[in-house]
């Protein structure tokens, strides 16, 4: 049998690669202790960053500020765009941010209804993103929509049904298809498995993990579920009261937590 060494061309992709997203001293507070402060990190292509912490720790505020949906009080978010080169998100034109949102970025909301158009068909939900990046050929749009429905394990016979006729798990998978159809570089996810029952969660996690590794996506995922973080994230940021208290490799943070708050969080999980 061949050894692995024979099958591989050595990969050194971690070297000399510019970050996709660089965040420096980002602050956004609604009130003292409510929001997030002094956030700095780099996200590299293909990396999955998990943001964990209890409710109200500032995770979702941070996600909104990172994804150009909430202007921070101070700090910079620099994104390395395929189309526009290096850009400072909050110093650039609103129109450029809009273009990013519908092409190079995807946003997966906790509630699928926030990310879908509920009164148009599943096919149209996927096709809309394609049309937004200039695709005009109806036949091709429909073919791509069918491909993506298949990729997220939705029967293509449902293409003309509205999302309101779908189960919660199917809606979430449709939302993912709608986001991925334009081959984004960076996906923001806010509790993507949050509202789903456990049997559906596992399937969605498996789907997400496969898509992320196959497409080489960079992902920033907010979750309060440490099991989800362990399965999907390469590294973690632990937040408490708007501040990052610990960062590191996912299994390192979860198996050998250093900060008192992370230790509390990890030791509070029910074991099965």
């Amino acid at each position: 049998m061949n050894t692995t060494a024979d099958l591989l061309t050595p990969t050194r992709e971690w070297q000399d690669i510019a970050p996709l997203l660089s965040v420096r001293e980002l602050n956004k507070f609604y009130a003292p202790g409510k929001g997030c402060g002094d956030i700095s990190f780099d996200l590299y292509p293909g990396e999955v960053l998990g943001i964990v912490g209890e409710s109200g720790s500032g995770k979702s505020t941070l996600l909104s500020a990172l994804s150009a949906r909430l202007t921070p009080d101070s700090g910079n978010v620099i994104y390395n765009s395929e189309q526009f080169g290096e850009m400072d998100l909050y110093a650039c034109e609103e129109s450029l941010r809009r273009v990013l949102m519908r092409s190079e970025w995807g946003i997966v909301h906790q509630h699928a209804r926030d990310g879908l158009r509920m009164n148009v068909s599943a096919g149209a939900n996927i096709g809309e993103r394609l049309m937004a990046v200039g695709e005009r050929h109806y036949g091709q749009i429909r073919t791509r929509a069918e491909e993506w429905l298949t990729a997220v394990e939705i029967d293509t016979s449902r293409i003309d049904d509205r999302p309101s006729q779908f189960s919660g798990g199917m809606q979430q998978r449709l939302q993912i298809a709608r986001n991925l159809v334009t081959h984004p570089k960076l996906i923001f996810m806010d509790e993507p498995t949050g509202g789903l029952d456990v049997s559906v969660q596992a399937k969605l996690l498996d789907l997400l993990r496969n898509l992320v590794s196959r497409l080489g996506l960079s992902v920033i995922i907010v979750t309060h579920d440490l099991a989800v973080a362990r399965l999907l994230a390469h590294r973690l940021m632990v937040m408490r009261r708007g501040e990052v208290v610990e960062t590191g490799l996912t299994d390192q943070v979860l198996d050998d937590p250093q900060h008192p708050y992370t230790q509390l969080l990890v030791s509070s999980i029910l074991q099965n």
């Binding site: 692995t4 990969t11 992709e13 971690w14 990396e47 490799l249």
Partner: peptide, 12 residues
């Protein structure tokens, strides 16, 4: 090492 370096190391 950075997390991504360790992940690359573990991978191969």
């Amino acid at each position: 090492a950075l997390p991504r370096r360790i992940i690359a190391l573990r991978r191969q």
